[in-house]
Write a protein that binds this DNA or RNA. Structure first.
Lengths: 114, 114
DNA sequence: TCGGGACATCGACGGGCGTCGATGCGACGA
DNA sequence: TCGTCGCATCGACGCCCGTCGATGTCCCGA
């Protein structure tokens, strides 16, 4: 577009996030970018045992069981939750490394301006 | 669904994220849940002056100027960026309080399991 | 005054997302 | 063996999102 000879501002030469890194982290944020899924992760993480079964999670929302199962699948596919079937019930727990990977985004100099 | 008399697991009694809080933070995450917008914020934040003009941001992507402008508008509408027009060029800078609001999500006990 | 450059906006298109009812699948109890 | 319960999957619907070309708007220099 603009001529490389004249620069209107700084050339953004500092170390920013790479395109590959952005493509990796974006799905994690996309999985969390939903009020229902955000509350699901919060409910599971804040549980005393660190895990929760689907039957209790269903009662926390005014949504169909199919919808909750769909959201849990999205979080599980993104690698944010682990699934464990014990008898009749299914328990979900958070993957701390996945959550810390997102948390590290806002601590790196690539996103923290100060 | 299940009878309240028999509980299959812990009742999730710990302090989790409220529905209102989830509705407030989810748009911020949704604005960041895109590889292009993630790189845009990273490019602006990692700039030496803390700001960047649209003309340079356009050259960092193989996208149309209209698309970049659209992404910048999404980030601006979410409150993540501030807009300042200086002469012919428009400069964007990150709002640190918005970014720290998202970063605080992964530091609160509602999401940090350990 | 007028031409041109920088950026925003518009309208349109294709694809993905959130939600639902219905159905399938395992695991337990009678 | 058979019913039932917990959960996943399927198909469908409406809506929003990312991207584009075309056009509008504002500002500066000639």
């Amino acid at each position: 577009m603009s001529d490389p000879g004249l620069a209107c501002c700084t050339p953004l030469s500092s170390t920013a996030m790479s395109a590959e890194q952005a493509e990796q982290v974006a799905p994690l944020l996309k999985a969390l970018a939903d009020p229902v899924r955000l509350r699901l992760v919060s409910l599971i993480a804040s549980s005393t045992t660190g895990e929760a079964c689907v039957c209790d999670l269903n009662e926390a929302f005014d949504l169909t069981q199919a919808t909750i199962s769909h959201h849990l699948k999205v979080l599980h596919s993104a690698g944010l939750l682990v699934r464990e079937k014990r008898g009749v019930w299914v328990y979900y727990a958070v993957r701390p490394e996945a959550l810390s990977a997102v948390a590290g985004l806002f601590s790196t100099p690539a996103l923290a301006p100060a």
